[in-house]
Design a protein around this nucleic acid. Structure first.
Lengths: 217, 217
DNA sequence: AAATAAATTGTGATCCGTCTAAACTTCGGT
DNA sequence: ACCGAAGTTTAGACGGATCACAATTTATTT
């Protein structure tokens, strides 16, 4: 079980969640930043390892074993993100990259100690749910901020952890998961939103508004 | 700069310290748990990387660059040992194995944060000195406990971190680096010592007495 | 100085993850 | 029903890390 295998499992899991269907080799290759041929080779490896079922030309799906691997790594990743942020003061926008390497070498013992130290948390600093030790995860149904309309209220619950610049932008403005919000106005043609967080009103649009997830009130 | 390279550099450093001379390929192979052939191949690699000078059939020595690599990893290792023991409560005898894998993926940023959090410590939980960020290390001259004679007093300063059973044995008896001691008696023929730590008298001999290092009063 | 023991190296093999180039499958549009 | 574009897989290669076996070199003993 190498790091590469774990990373592919994680990527397939994420794409399955997003698309709700079997994952295309091309999509996987793009996500992993490798050529389609490389992804295809790795898919074959994952198949012989019993982590995926692969129907040639039809895409790939995680088996139960594969899902377990992906969730185990995701648990490592998100526990580490929270741990680094809380106890070592690593900035919000940098915890992802640190966790990305540590997740593969975290022992089960250390995982348990960290989880206990943090009080068995359910969400990481970006609002992403942390899988339990036995591989359960509760994906809250949330809406992209960009899809809200004027007058909506709700709670900002999560944002992708993979773009440090976005996270830095939000952090600088004091916007973090858990914040209540109200959409004051929204420009037409997929335009930016005017959103109130507490006292402050922010203008949010583009990829940022699409990356921010909200649970409506 | 792979993990394997770093591990070899660390091993060569340790053997150089112990023997005070160039390191034989065979000794290196035994230490690393590989065949002499593998060690020989890696020595060649280290040479082309400029980390060692290798005179065929005459052994290998770290260059300045090689020493820097070894000390950097040693710093990671010992900082992690202390960190895991202090803030996560990892038992004394297990921190070594955890640190062994984490040392290779610890970023400089995290290294600094951990060092700061610990107050820039100079020694790890086993009494081993922690190299500074710029690669300085102060190796205190210590004596093996086994070499003391009846009547000697001193301070137990360190013990090899690599044998968990030994560490567990000491931990169970409440013996840790920093403890003052007095040798009450020593049996002849390289026999065991009767040593007083505070109120308690312990009988210590064999490999254990050779692994424990003492600074005499 | 020769014989033997020990240490060292070279050779050839495997596995992993990646690449390029080329061949193949699928599917939508004519 | 066919054709071409898009997507996918195979083939062949490479660099890295590692191993065991066999050949070689050095050291030691007689």
């Amino acid at each position: 079980m190498t790091s590469a295998v774990e990373d592919y499992a994680k990527a397939i899991y994420a794409l399955e969640q997003r698309e709700g269907t079997a994952v295309a080799t091309n999509a996987l290759a793009k996500r992993m930043g490798v050529t389609p041929a490389s992804a295809s080779a790795m898919v074959k490896r994952l198949d012989t390892l019993g982590l995926v079922t692969h129907v040639p030309y039809r895409g790939v799906q995680l088996t139960d074993a594969g899902t377990r691997v992906a969730l185990e790594i995701l648990r490592h990743h998100r526990l580490l993100e929270l741990y680094l942020a809380e106890t070592l003061g690593v900035p919000w926008d940098r915890v992802h990259d640190e966790a990305e390497v540590l997740e593969h070498v975290l022992s089960e013992d250390l995982e348990d100690l960290i989880a206990a130290k943090l009080g068995d948390p359910t969400h990481d600093p970006h609002g992403d749910p942390i899988p339990t030790r036995d591989g359960r995860i509760t994906e809250a149904t949330s809406t992209a901020l960009s899809q809200l309309t004027a007058g909506s209220t709700g709670t900002f619950v999560r944002v992708s952890d993979s773009d440090p610049a976005m996270l830095r932008y939000l952090a600088e403005r004091g916007i973090a998961p858990g914040a209540g919000l109200e959409v004051i106005d929204k420009q037409p043609f997929d335009g930016p939103l005017f959103v109130r967080f507490g006292e402050d009103i922010h203008v949010l649009g583009g990829d940022l508004a699409r990356a921010m997830r909200v649970v409506e009130a």
